[in-house]
Design a protein around this nucleic acid. Structure first.
Length: 948
DNA sequence: CGCCCCCCCTAC
DNA sequence: TTAGGTAGGGGGGGCG
C-alpha cells in the first residue's frame, strides 16, 4: 500500500568520499572529468557527421548583432509542405490550453464576439512542431429540470438566465451580449447514490465562456425564477470542471496522446500565424481523431528538451537580487527525447571566455544583449519541454525580473504564441501531502516546464534536495566545485576564470538532463497523463484529485451519469486501519509475511463500493429492494450489489488493474529497452492511480467526498486482517499436525507477520504460500492474500518500527536488511545517528552479535563526546550549509541541533523545508546522548541524558 | 515527573 | 481558487 515512491537508494549522506579539492589557485591543473565527457561528445559527433557551421567557431564573440543562424542545429528539422486536401496531420499532443479569440470563418461554433478556442501543441514523428486551434467546443454544466418542465420553456429559461448573468456582471469589458448559448433537455442521472436507475430530465446549460459558468451556477443555486415556475434553488452538476478537462473528456483526448487530423478536415494557416510552430492549423472539435495510447500509438515523438542554468554575480554575502546583480552566464543543453546525449551544448557569457571543447560559447559585452540573445535562442530551439534545477522559483523569475530591470523588451516572450508575454505570478499551493508551498509560475504557452526539483519534491523522499546531493544519490556524480562566494571573483578575473565558471554552469545544465533520463521522468509522467487523462502540466501543477475526477467523468459519461458539485466542508475523521499489537522482541526464527495485494482497490471491487451503488437513508424501503440486492458493510453502510448495478469506481479500478497486468505482461515480452521503459512507466502509473481512488473518496475537502465508501473500505480492511489472524492461528497448530502453533506477532493494515514455528526459511516460505492461498479462498475475489517474504532474523521494536533480513526469491540468501520506521530511514536525524543505528542493526541481524552492537554504539558515543569523530564524512552537508547561508542569507534558518546526539547544525531552507546537517556543534553542553540496549529485545534505544 | 498536545515523519 | 486517507512512534514543550 505504497502511496508514494520511496527513496530506494543507498543510505544518503554517510559515505565519505574525496572531493575534487580545488581552491582559487589550483583550478587550472587538469581538466575535470566533466570536461573529458564533453570532449568525448565532441569526438563522437566529429566521427558521425559533417560539421557544417560549427567547426572552428567554438567561441563566438557577439557584438551588437545577434543572428539565430549562428548554429544550424538550433532550428527544428525542416517542415515539409503540407496539403490539407491530401495529407493527414498526425502529432503527439503535449500541451493543451484554451484562449478567448475571434471565431475563424468556416469553423464551427459561435461566430460573434470572443469564443473559447482550445489550443493543442505537439510534435510530429519527424520532429516538427504543431499548434492546433480547436473550434466549436463550449463549456456547459447541468441542473435538474424543475418538475413540469417541457421543451416549450427552454427559450424562457435561457433568456432569463442570460439576463440575470448579464446583470450580475460588475464590468463587461469584453462587451458580452450573450452569456447563455444554449439550454437543452437531456436524460441524466445523479451519480451520487443509487436511485433505481431512473434517468431524469436535466438541463444542459451551455455558456459562452468558461468564466461564466461560476456565476451562472451561483445564481441558479441561490434561487432562480423564470416563466410560470416558482423561485427555486437548483443544484449544479459538473459546474466545477476545468474547461480543458471538459474538452478532453468529451472528445476522448488524454494527456500526451496522438492526434490525427484527417485530410480535408482541417485548415493550414498560411498567414495570420499567431504561433512560432512550424505547422499551425484550425480544426472543428468533432473532426479530430484521438488515438488511444495502445500499440503503435504508445510511441513518443522526438521532443526537444532544453535544460539550462544561469549564474549571477552577487555581492558578498548577499543573495543575488535581479534589480541589482547581473546575469553573467546562461548554459543550455538540448536533447531529443529518446536520445542519450544533448546535441546542443552552449554557454552565453558576459565578457570573453576561453573555449571549452564540445560546447559553443557565445560572448557578449552587454548583459542586455546576452539576455536578448538567449531569449532568441530559446525561441529558435523551440523546446517542447524545459527543465533545469529550481528554474521555476529561481532561474526563470530572475531572468524575467532582470530583463525587466534592464528593459530588454523582447525578452519575456518565451512561449510559442507570438504576442503573449510571459508573466511572473505567485502561486500558493497547499495540500496535506505536500504541505504549504509557495511557488512562482510563468506562463509559457505550448512548452512544458519540467523543473526537476519540483519532480523530486513530489516523487521522492530525500534527505537533501540540493542538486549536488541529488546527483550524488542517483548518479554517483557531483557538481563542479565552485563556491558561490567566488562566482563574482571568477567573473571579474580573465577569460580562463570565466571559463571555469562556464564549465560549472554547463554541468548544472547537464545534470538535470541526466537525472531526467535516469529517473525516466518524462516517460513516467507521460504515461501518467495518458492513464489518467489529464494534461502533462497538471501533473506538476495540481494535486491528486484531478486525476481521479478525469477518470470518473470519462466512465460516468458512458452511462449518462453526472457528477454533483458538493460544497466542501471539513468533518470528523473516520476510522482507518488496524495495527495489530506487536509482540515486541528479537526473533531468531523465520517470520513469514502475508500481504493483501492492492487491499483497498480490491475491497472496492469485491464489494462494489461506489457513489452509484450507495444506498442513502431510506433508499432500501423507497426502492423496495430485497435483502439479496444489497450488502451492509462493517460500518453499517449499504450498497447495491453488482447484479443490480455495477459501480463506476470498481469499473475504473478493474480497468486500471487489468491494464497494469497487460503492461506487465508486455513488459516481460518486450526486448527494446526504450519500449520497456515506457511500459514500466505505464504499469507504475496504473498502480499509483488505482491506489489514489480510495483517498479521493475520503478527501473531505475534495471534489466528491463520500465517507460511506471510505469508512466501509477501512471497515472491511479491519475485519479482514482480524479474520486472517484467526484463520492462520486456527489452522497452523500442533493439533493439526504442524510443527508448532502459529502465532501472528504483528500486522499493519494489509499484512500479517506469522511465527510459524519452523526452523528454516524454505519451510516458512512453503507454509506461507499455502497459508496465503488457503486464506484467500475465504474472501471474495479479487481480494487475494499473497505470501510476500520471510524475515529471518526479525527485530520487532514497536508498531511501525522493525527490521529484519529479507528473503523472498531465494531461501538461501537474504536480499537486503529491511528497516521500517527506524532512525535509519528517517530524515529528521542526522546521518551520524542513522549510520550508527544501521551498523548496530547489522551487527544484531547479520553478525548475530548484540554485544558487538552495544560496544559499537558506546564507542561512537564516547568518540563523539571527546570530539574524536572525523567530520570529514560530513563534507557534503558542510558544503550545503555554506550554500544555504550564502545563498539564502538571513532567510536561511540555522539552529542548533539540540535534539540530535551528534554535533550537528541543522539548516533549514525556507523554500524547500529541506534540512541538512553539518559540522560541529559550537555548544557541546547542549549535547544529549545516551545509548542503552534493552535486554529483552536487543533494541538500540536512544533517550535521556548522557551518563556524564 | 507524568500528562497532554503539537510537530515531524513514517507505515500502510 | 485549490487541496488524497488514517495510525502511530517519538521528541519536545508547556503545565500542574
Amino acid at each position: 500500500m505504497d502511496f508514494k515512491r520511496r527513496n530506494g537508494g543507498p543510505l544518503a549522506g554517510g559515505a565519505s568520499h574525496a572531493k575534487r579539492g580545488k581552491g582559487m589557485n589550483d583550478w587550472e591543473d587538469s581538466p575535470s572529468q566533466f570536461e573529458e565527457e564533453l570532449l568525448m561528445l565532441d569526438e563522437a559527433e566529429m566521427d558521425s557527421e559533417e560539421m557544417e557551421g560549427q567547426a572552428g567557431h567554438d567561441v563566438i564573440p557577439v557584438g551588437d548583432l545577434f543572428s539565430a543562424d549562428l548554429n544550424p542545429r538550433w532550428r527544428r528539422p525542416h517542415a515539409p509542405s503540407l496539403d490539407p486536401s491530401s495529407d493527414t496531420l498526425v502529432f503527439q499532443q503535449i500541451d493543451l490550453d484554451y484562449y478567448l479569440g475571434s471565431a475563424v470563418a468556416g469553423m464551427p461554433g459561435q461566430s460573434q464576439g470572443k469564443v473559447p478556442i482550445i489550443r493543442m501543441f505537439g510534435v510530429t514523428d519527424s520532429g516538427n512542431s504543431v499548434c492546433c486551434h480547436v473550434h466549436g467546443f463550449a463549456p456547459y454544466f447541468y441542473v435538474p429540470a424543475p418538475s413540469g418542465f417541457t421543451s416549450a420553456y427552454l427559450g424562457e429559461f435561457q433568456r432569463e438566465l442570460n439576463s440575470v448573468v448579464l446583470k450580475d456582471m460588475r464590468s463587461n469589458k469584453d462587451n458580452i451580449s450573450v452569456t447563455v448559448l444554449a439550454v437543452d433537455i437531456t436524460h441524466k442521472e445523479n451519480m451520487y447514490g443509487y436511485h433505481g436507475k431512473q434517468s431524469l430530465d436535466f438541463l444542459q446549460i451551455t455558456m459562452a465562456m468558461p468564466r461564466l459558468i461560476a456565476p451562472a451556477k451561483r445564481l441558479l443555486e441561490q434561487g432562480f425564477k423564470f416563466g410560470p415556475f416558482p423561485l427555486q434553488c437548483y443544484q449544479a452538476f459538473e459546474a466545477n470542471i476545468d474547461f480543458e478537462i471538459r474538452f478532453m473528456v468529451d472528445s476522448d483526448v488524454v494527456g500526451c496522446c496522438w492526434i490525427e487530423l484527417p485530410k480535408d478536415k482541417y485548415r493550414l494557416r498560411e498567414e495570420k500565424n499567431v504561433s512560432l510552430c512550424q505547422y499551425e492549423v484550425d480544426v472543428g472539435w468533432t473532426d479530430l481523431i484521438s488515438h488511444p495510447a495502445e500499440g503503435k500509438w504508445q510511441r513518443i515523438a522526438p521532443l526537444r528538451v532544453l535544460s539550462f542554468d544561469i549564474e549571477c554575480a552577487g555581492r558578498k554575502g548577499i543573495f543575488p537580487e535581479p534589480d541589482k546583480d547581473p546575469v553573467i552566464q546562461i548554459a543550455s543543453m538540448v536533447q531529443r527525447q529518446g536520445e542519450t546525449e544533448p546535441f546542443i551544448r552552449t554557454v552565453f557569457t558576459l565578457q570573453t571566455c576561453a573555449s571549452i571543447v564540445g560546447s559553443q560559447i557565445l560572448c557578449f559585452t552587454q548583459e542586455k544583449q546576452l539576455l536578448q540573445a538567449w531569449a532568441e535562442f530559446l525561441r529558435t530551439v523551440d523546446p517542447d519541454i524545459i527543465t533545469g534545477y529550481n528554474i521555476q522559483n529561481f532561474d526563470f523569475p530572475y531572468l524575467l525580473n532582470r530583463a525587466a530591470a534592464l528593459k530588454v523588451n523582447y525578452f519575456p516572450y518565451l512561449g510559442r504564441i507570438r504576442n503573449t508575454k510571459s508573466v511572473l505570478r505567485d502561486l500558493n499551493f497547499q495540500s496535506k501531502q505536500m504541505g504549504r508551498r509557495e511557488n512562482k509560475t510563468i506562463n509559457m504557452e505550448g512548452r512544458v516546464q519540467f523543473d526537476l526539483l519540483q519532480v523530486l519534491l513530489r516523487d521522492y523522499k530525500l534527505r537533501s534536495y540540493s542538486l549536488n546531493a541529488v546527483s550524488f544519490h542517483f548518479l554517483q556524480e557531483q557538481k563542479e566545485d565552485v563556491q558561490h562566494s567566488i562566482i563574482t571573483d571568477l567573473q571579474n578575473g580573465n577569460e580562463q576564470t570565466r571559463r571555469r565558471l562556464a564549465v560549472y554552469c554547463l554541468k548544472d545544465a547537464y545534470l538535470p538532463l541526466r537525472l531526467l533520463q535516469k529517473l525516466m521522468c518524462v516517460i513516467n509522467y507521460m504515461e501518467m497523463a495518458r492513464v489518467t487523462g489529464v494534461p502533462l502540466t497538471y501533473l506538476l501543477s495540481r494535486g491528486q484529485q484531478i486525476k481521479v475526477v478525469s477518470q470518473l467523468l470519462r466512465q460516468a459519461m458512458k452511462q449518462d451519469l453526472v457528477m454533483p458539485v458538493v460544497k466542501t466542508e471539513g468533518g470528523e475523521d473516520y476510522t482507518g486501519a488496524t495495527v495489530i499489537e506487536p509482540e515486541k522482541g528479537y526473533y531468531s526464527v523465520p517470520i513469514a509475511t502475508l500481504d493483501f495485494s492492492s487491499l483497498y482497490p480490491s475491497i472496492m471491487m469485491a464489494h462494489n463500493l461506489c457513489y452509484t451503488t450507495l444506498l442513502q437513508k431510506g433508499s432500501v424501503q423507497k426502492l423496495g429492494l430485497s435483502p439479496d440486492d444489497f450488502i451492509k458493510t462493517p460500518t453499517g453502510d449499504q450498497f447495491v450489489k453488482s447484479s443490480v448495478r455495477k459501480g463506476l469506481l470498481p469499473e475504473i479500478l478493474e480497468n486500471l488493474l487489468s491494464a497494469r497486468k497487460r503492461a506487465k505482461a508486455e513488459l516481460k515480452k518486450e526486448t527494446d529497452p526504450f519500449k520497456k521503459q515506457v511500459l514500466d512507466g505505464r504499469q507504475l502509473a496504473l498502480k499509483i492511480s488505482a491506489n489514489s481512488v480510495y483517498g479521493f473518496t475520503g478527501a473531505q475537502v475534495g471534489k466528491l467526498p463520500c465517507l460511506e465508501i471510505s469508512q466501509s473500505v477501512t471497515g472491511f480492511g479491519r475485519q479482514m486482517i482480524e479474520t486472517t489472524k484467526k484463520l492462520v492461528e486456527s489452522k497452523y497448530t500442533l493439533s493439526n499436525g504442524y510443527q508448532a502453533d502459529a502465532k501472528v506477532i504483528y500486522g499493519d493494515t494489509d499484512s500479517v507477520m506469522v511465527k510459524l514455528g519452523v526452523a528454516t526459511v524454505s519451510e516458512a516460505m512453503e507454509i506461507g504460500r499455502e497459508a496465503a492461498e488457503w486464506v484467500s479462498s475465504h474472501f471474495t475475489p479479487p481480494i487475494k492474500l499473497e505470501f510476500e517474504k520471510v524475515y529471518y532474523p526479525y527485530l520487532l521494536i514497536n508498531k511501525k518500527r522493525y527490521a529484519g533480513l529479507y528473503f523472498s526469491s531465494s531461501a538461501d540468501t537474504h536480499e537486503k536488511m529491511d528497516c521500517k520506521g527506524i532512525e535509519t530511514v528517517r530524515r529528521d536525524n542526522c546521518p551520524l545517528v542513522a549510520n550508527l543505528i544501521n551498523t548496530c542493526l547489522q551487527k544484531i541481524l547479520i553478525d548475530r552479535d548484540p554485544q558487538g552492537a552495544v560496544d559499537h554504539a558506546k564507542e561512537v558515543i564516547s568518540d563523539l563526546l571527546c570530539n574524536r569523530i572525523d567530520i570529514s564524512q560530513l563534507v557534503i552537508t558542510k558544503e550545503l550549509t555554506r550554500t544555504a547561508q550564502e545563498y539564502a542569507g538571513k532567510q536561511a534558518h540555522v539552529e542548533l541541533a539540540e535534539r540530535t546526539p551528534s554535533m550537528c547544525w541543522r539548516t533549514t531552507f525556507p523554500s524547500t523545508h529541506n534540512t541538512t546537517w553539518s559540522s560541529s556543534c559550537p555548544n557541546p553542553s547542549k549535547l544529549r546522548v545516551s545509548c542503552s540496549v534493552s535486554q529483552h529485545s536487543h533494541a538500540i534505544l536512544f533517550s535521556g541524558l548522557p551518563p556524564y
